[in-house]
Amino acid sequence: MNFSSSSQYVVSQELATAVNAAVTLEKPLLLKGEPGTGKTRLAEELASALETDLLQWSIKSTTKAQQGLYEYDAVSRLRDSQLGSEKVHDISNYIRPGKLWQAFTAKKRPVLLIDEIDKADVEFPNDLLHELDQMAFHVYETGEQITAQQRPIVLITSNNEKALPDAFLRRCFFHYIQFPDSDTLKAIVDVHFPDLHSDLLDTALAMFFELREVPGLKKKPSTSELLDWLRLLLVEDINADELRKSREQGGVLPLTGALLKHEQDVERLAEHARIQRR
């Protein structure tokens, strides 16, 4: 197994090492990093590289660990019993497998993405310890033991909203996706916009990195914002000269809305530009 950059996705050497190690040693891989650095995209790309299924479990603040295993639909059963349905005698008709169950019983070793695990309650990761470790769980209603045919490739993403418990971390491999340097970023842009003029790209990247250096931004623009911005520049047909001009004037960038998502950040940038000009 050797995961590397594809025609749609650029992987750094560190990330490739991380993914390969996690796949080989069958350990969950925990990914952190600024929002928009491609954590979720990685899972999609990995699944397509391995030609297998991607099971995506998006975590919300109300998600319970049990929902990933299975849910027992008592209400349907109660209703069926009223209607005198035959189904009602077999409890397994009312057990709904969750994402983990699906991953354990898949024919081909799937990629299981547990997306934004930090959204859930603080105890959520602890509740999954045993299941991720042993790759097995017990269904109380039917007395069945679900064991993984083959250990799925588990990717977990976190945006650092909540700290994760130590016991959970010990069982995972951890990789922090760093913001790409300008060479990597160029490679990423090349993959998305193959026919972008190189001088426009150079100017745009320079401005983008300057923008990231502006102190005190609430949310620094990330890769996905850069791609949106470039798309807009292309649509609006802004050329490198115009871009350079506004940069020299130290003014606000054209189409800032794609890059900055907070009102205060736009103000902050204008203020910063004023100070620079002085």
Binding site: Q13, E14, T17, A18, N20, A21, A22, T24, L25, K27, L30, K32, D166, L169, R170, C172, F173, F174, H175, Y176
Partner: peptide, 30 residues
């Protein structure tokens, strides 16, 4: 875990690989 990764030849004869690999396995917070 790190030892079994080494056993699986994930970072053979490359100190940079070894650096990434050991960081991946041993460190859990940026």
């Amino acid at each position: 875990d790190l030892l079994s990764a080494m056993k699986a030849n994930l970072a053979f004869a490359d100190v940079e690989q070894f650096y990434y690999l050991s960081r991946l396995i041993l460190v859990k917070d940026e």
